[in-house]
Simulated assay, not measured.
Amino acid sequence: MAVSYKKLFHMLIDRDISNAQLQKIAGYSANITTRLKNNTYVSLESVEKICRVLDCKVDDIVEFIPDEDQVKK
C-alpha cells in the first residue's frame, strides 16, 4: 500500500503556509519535508506534530493508496 501526502500540500496552499514555515513550527527536519514530497515513509510522531500544528486529523493529510494487485483481488 502506497501513501500520498497530496492532501497535506493542498491544505498548506489553502492556508497560505509554506513547507519551511510548517517545518519550523512543527519542529521537524528538512529530511521529513523531502520524504513528504516523495510520498515515502514518515514516522507517526512527525505526522502527529503536523496534525497538532494544523489542527487536523491524520486522514486530512494522509491518503493510503492500495497497490494495483490489491485492487484486482
Rank of each mutant, 00 (worst) to 15 (best):
T40F: 00
E63F: 00
E48S: 13
H10V: 10
K37H: 05
A20Q: 14
E68D: 13
Q21K: 15
I32G: 01
R35I: 00
L44D: 14
I61H: 06
V42I: 10
D69L: 11
K37M: 10
E48M: 10
E68V: 00
A2H: 14
D59V: 00
N31P: 01
K72T: 12
V53M: 02
V3Y: 10
R52N: 14
I13S: 12
V58Y: 09
L36M: 08
L12S: 07
F9K: 12
S46K: 11
D16C: 11
D55Q: 14
P66Y: 03
N19K: 14
D14I: 07
L12P: 05
V3R: 12
N38R: 15
S46R: 08
D69I: 14
F9W: 13
H10N: 15
V53D: 04
V53F: 03
S43N: 12
I13A: 13
Y5A: 05
D60V: 01
R35Y: 06
S18A: 01
D60C: 02
D16N: 15
K72C: 00
Y5E: 02
L22H: 07
A2L: 14
M11V: 11
R35D: 07
R15N: 12
Q21N: 07
Q23M: 13
R15P: 01
D14E: 14
R52E: 12
K72V: 10
R35G: 00
Q21G: 00
A26G: 05
I32V: 15
K37S: 11
K7C: 07
E48I: 09
L36T: 03
M1W: 00
T34R: 15
Y28R: 03
D67F: 11
L22D: 05
F64P: 01
V42E: 01
S29N: 08
N39Q: 06
I13M: 06
Y5W: 08
M1L: 12
G27D: 10
Q21R: 15
N39G: 04
I32S: 09
A26P: 03
T34S: 15
D60T: 05
I32M: 06
K49D: 04
V53P: 04
N31I: 11
N31W: 00
K72M: 04
K7W: 02
S4Y: 06
M1D: 08
Y28F: 15
Y5P: 04
E48T: 11
R15D: 03
L12H: 04
Y5Q: 07
K6R: 15
R52H: 10
L22V: 04
I65E: 02
D60H: 06
S29W: 07
V71S: 02
V47P: 01
S4D: 09
N31V: 14
I50W: 03
L22R: 07
C56A: 08
K49Q: 13
K7G: 02
V62E: 07
C51A: 06
L22C: 08
L8Y: 10
K37C: 06
I61Y: 02
Y5H: 11
V42H: 03
D59T: 05
V58C: 07
Q70H: 06
E45L: 07
L54D: 01
V42A: 05
I25Y: 08
V58D: 06
L44M: 12
P66W: 01
